[in-house]
């Protein structure tokens, strides 16, 4: 595993239907820039990431990896309304913001960074896949510092829970971010595993056969059902479980929010986060706090 040290983490969550003016007010705590022509998804992105960076001095080449299940699809729906219901050409700001890359752009512009700027998605495992991209960039020596986050709006998040029987968390707007570099100095923790498995049994086999001691805390992603969670608990015998979905609610980017929240809440502990997608591909993230 390449070195991926966590220097800072932060989560912004809000109840569904949070007003964009409230988000703008919150952002003013971190930057004087007045954002206009932006929508809720973009504001959530900026707020979560600015909270994470806070007073850190960033290298100009810092990369941004924005992971999302639904990105700007809310804006896309509004623009489709303009075309199909109002029978008009769409207004330019709306149309431009149907492209989800605009959120990571406005963030890069605000932070004054011009490293890689990637918006990536993967059904139910967007944050995990984003971390894999970051991992390959660090391994190839392409990037030396990165902001990685997951952002999704409450109003769009319900759709991604389709097929998750019995999972009824409250929907939230979520924006969880981590500032990561390959340098240990000044870091509070590190990612120690980012692994994918083609099916449940191979994931379980890997966890059972690991020689290193078990993680202090276990957390399960949204698509791990109650029964499966129970059997994984039996195997892992964790000292504690962080049920961030029940405690704080769900958004398409719940994993990013859960992990960045863990960094804040569980100092000195290790976390094993297990998630899966609708096909039964599994993804495991382990992180250790110093």
């Amino acid at each position: 595993m390449n070195e991926m040290y966590i220097h800072s983490a932060s989560t912004f969550i809000a109840e569904a239907h949070t007003d964009t003016n409230y988000l703008k007010e919150e952002i003013r705590r971190y930057t004087k820039e007045n954002f206009r022509r932006v929508n809720k998804f973009i504001l959530l992105t900026i707020l979560g990431a600015r909270q994470c960076i806070n007073t850190h001095a960033l290298d100009a080449d810092t990369a941004i990896y924005l992971t999302t299940e639904h990105g700007n699809l809310g804006e896309t729906a509004d623009v489709l309304d303009e075309i199909y219901e109002v029978n008009s050409l769409p207004k330019p700001f709306g149309f431009i913001n149907t492209m989800s890359s605009t959120a990571a752009f406005y963030l890069a512009q605000n932070l004054g960074v011009r490293g890689r700027n990637i918006t990536v998605s993967s059904q139910h495992l967007s944050f995990e896949r984003g971390l894999e991209l970051l991992k390959v960039d660090f391994a190839g020596g392409v990037e030396r510092s990165a902001l990685i986050g997951g952002v999704d709006e409450a109003s769009l998040s319900e759709a991604s829970l389709e097929g998750c029987a019995g999972r009824s968390w409250r929907m939230i707007d979520g924006s969880g971010w981590l500032y990561v570099t390959p340098e240990r100095e000044g870091a509070g923790g590190a990612f120690t595993e980012i692994r994918s498995f083609r099916d449940g049994p191979s994931c379980v086999r890997w966890m059972s056969e690991r020689e290193i001691s078990a993680a202090d805390v276990v957390a399960f992603g949204a698509r791990i059902g109650d029964e499966e969670a129970a059997s994984l608990r039996d195997i892992l015998q964790p000292a504690a479980e962080f049920d961030y979905l029940r405690e704080y609610g769900y958004s398409g980017s719940a994993t990013a929010c859960g992990i960045s929240m863990f960094v804040k809440l569980y100092q000195g502990k290790t976390l094993l986060h297990i998630n899966r997608d609708q096909r039964g591909n599994y993804a495991v993230i382990e992180l250790q706090q110093f």
């Binding site: 022509r37 109002v86 008009s88 050409l89 769409p90 207004k91 330019p92 700001f93 431009i96």
Partner: peptide, 13 residues
């Protein structure tokens, strides 16, 4: 220029 385009569409509508 994007503001100008935005205003143009609004005027059109």
């Amino acid at each position: 220029s994007i503001d100008a385009l935005q205003i143009s569409i609004a005027i059109q509508n």
